[in-house]
Amino acid sequence: MKKIESLSEYRALLGENKKTHNGIDKNCFLLPSGMEKFISAGKVYYRSYDQGILIFIDENSYYNLYYYIEKGSCFPVFSCEKPVLIEELSQNGSRDAYIAANEARLKAAGFGFYRKSFQYEIGIGAEEPQRFCTAEDEQAVKASGFRYDTACYADFRPQIISLWKESLDFGDISGDDLALELSQDEELLTVISGDGAVACTYLYEIVGRDVSEGRHVVTNPSYYRKGLGSFVLGLTLDHLRAEGIKRHYTWIHEQNIPSVRMHERLGFLQNGRSSIQYILK
């Protein structure tokens, strides 16, 4: 596996790959600025094969894989020291036929189906009338001894990481990656705490001019069934609206029915976008 040192090297590799193959299947539509960010961080590697080129983004405990291989060719069979994840995205079934055809060759190369998620979205612009977290909700939560903040994770960082490690099912993706996410500037967090313990957290990110993405709601099992998940979401949505954000979306695993219900109760709706992940262990 060779490291890619610059965007121009990346472009040259893909240009050469295009010349030597008859049409390219790919799963990467990152803009150059997005790829450059990974390259600058020293996280991008590649391997060349007869069929084309594979680009590996090092996500610490796993690789995110972008492929550029000849149309209809078999997928290169390879082994790797870390799990490798391929993600295929689709909107309103627009790529279903391609994804179905591609699945067979990914499986032949050793990739297993990992999970399917759907995007749920809610409008939170100023024209939306309701508050997501009412004054009554706030009073009830405060009366129960909880406090909350949108920027207090430094106080609770070890507790939060420990809670996430125990609570999140990421398969081969470790809790250490989540700790790294916490240290990244773009990531923001709402924390609810009670009795000096972290009760519930919501990690989210501003992804566009007026768009935000929810990443994870995690509730400490000792505080289940107190409505804290809905509360932390509502609190965050109101906060984002005050900051000028107009859309908020999140990915929910298709089998995570409790999360689907919680989001739907707040007004989230499926927006037709889906993601299928394949993993090579």
């Binding site: 909107q91 992804v207 566009g208 976008r273």
Partner: peptide, 20 residues
């Protein structure tokens, strides 16, 4: 793009739709 009105998913979808 520069003002981040479209996100990367939008680009993926737009490119796929244009190609097709």
């Amino acid at each position: 793009i520069d003002n981040k009105v479209l996100d990367s998913f939008d680009i993926i979808t737009i490119v796929s739709e244009f190609n097709e």
